[in-house]
Design a protein around this nucleic acid. Structure first.
Lengths: 266, 266
DNA sequence: CGACCTTTTGAACGTATTCAACCGATGTGG
DNA sequence: CCACATCGGTTGAATACGTTCAAAAGGTCG
């Protein structure tokens, strides 16, 4: 697990039911003999749920199921699903997609290990977007029942949840700022720098990583056309700031890329 | 309090220090003999903090200070301020503004009675945006200390806070969708319809209200130029969907305005 | 190997911005 | 109370940016 692995094309539709079935299974049977526990998970600092209960009671199973697997292209949850649990990404990555009438949709976020998923469902007790695995992924499951209950070792959970949701709001503000005030080149630069930071936080290389989402996903997220994403990537490459080959991306001039953000003329 | 009142020009700069001083005052002295209590506030359903403690202990003062006044153009809090409390708007309205390097900034939200303010500060324990009163306004203050404490009557607070933050995330998704996938006319229509809904929820007329923010604020929020806001408002008026006169807005054809949202060609 | 999907690139078009002038409303000071 | 200054809003014309449409190249998977 030294660097994020690449992935092939996505196949959203075909695996959906399979994923749902798998989800069912994961909920009903407590996974014993897990390959990893919080104590060896390596996400400690970044993760919402990590080490949460081991610290206080040692009975992780009551609160967190930490081995739900979703295959590439599978749904962790769908818009409209009853909200039953929160999730933290353990391995792999997800995108969240907001569907609109007339087939229009937008990617509202990319989520990597340690990130919280599902908080959108708390308010209406139904999820309002789709969470789709960008690659084969594992999540930890925090049942909703554990969130409404109170008790010694849920204080910490409540606290972290609040922080995570607040952080989510702050991040959304950032994206809105991006969508509202930036040119396409700046948006793309900001996007890459954001990824870079997040990889760095998680111990991966900040200058060389794999874009596990499609160009179309990026375009959707950044509110632009996929053709424009291609063009701007090519331009950034032409300027010597990055090197792209398929899904593999290398940042060659971090400072220069950062300079893209502040104003246009350099 | 039958309909939102109009307001004049905003004066952000001059009142700032005055507002800060006022805030200080509101924090240090418990307001006795308040003009309104939760039980007669009229925001019951919509408000995060309303009736919260009266129900359980009757000692509202411990948890909520419900009469902090901010004058028009004054700051409720600023980006970078230590996070000390959450707020619910009681009367008036606010905008939240994200500042960027080089004087660029964006309006990230408009907030009306019952809405939660300040949740952006939980994650880093500092606020990440400015909250500015669009008119003379009152808020209820929920000190941070009350949020971290646990106890019988904070369960409800925690619960409502979660719901409110989750709702905030959902709303931001909606805005992102707007910014990312919509033409300017659609954005404006969506904005007006959103306002309409929110006014309706609060018992105001959904078809006739006052835009308490400037065109520039709207433009910033919707990620477009203020000239474009003007143009599109004029166009919507020309199409007979709305009537605008200065800050007064009337929706003449709600269905038609809704139709603006779905696709372009009618 | 062949079918399909993603990505790239080109050319024409359309939308929204920019710049600027003008109008109207508001608020201030004489 | 009126004149003036200021700010917010509207509108026009030119420009630039990004989209759209289309075609072709490159990958991926059966």
């Amino acid at each position: 697990m030294s660097a994020p692995n690449g992935l092939g094309a996505e196949a959203y539709q075909s695996v959906a039911t399979g994923a749902a079935a798998e989800r069912q299974r994961a909920h009903s049977t407590l996974p014993l003999g897990l390959p990893e526990r919080c104590s060896i998970c390596g996400l400690r600092d970044a993760c919402v749920s990590c080490d949460l209960v081991l610290v206080s009671t040692g009975r992780a199973e009551d609160v967190i199921v930490n081995d739900q697997h979703i295959v590439q292209g599978g749904y962790l949850y769908r818009a409209g699903d009853p909200f039953t649990a929160l999730y933290t990404v353990r391995t792999g990555s997800y995108k969240t997609v907001q569907s609109l009438e007339a087939g229009r949709e937008q990617v509202t976020g990319f989520h990597m290990p340690g990130d919280l998923l599902g908080a959108d469902g708390i308010s209406s007790e139904r999820h309002d977007c789709n969470a789709i695995a960008l690659e084969d992924s594992h999540v930890c499951v925090i049942p909703y029942s554990q969130i409404t209950k109170f008790g010694r070792y849920r204080r910490e959970l409540q606290y972290r949840l609040q922080k995570a949701m607040s952080g989510e709001i702050v991040r959304k503000h950032g994206v809105m700022l991006l969508l509202g005030t930036r040119r396409t080149e700046e948006r793309l630069a900001a996007f890459l720098l954001n990824l870079s930071e997040r990889f760095a936080t998680r111990g991966y290389s900040p200058t060389e990583f794999v874009l596990r989402m499609t160009r179309r996903d990026i375009a959707s997220y950044l509110g632009m056309n996929d053709a424009t994403v291609s063009r701007q990537l090519s331009k950034l490459q032409g300027d010597g700031l990055i090197a792209v080959r398929n899904k593999h991306l290398q940042i060659r001039d971090l400072a220069g890329l950062t300079r893209c953000l502040s104003g246009k003329a350099d």
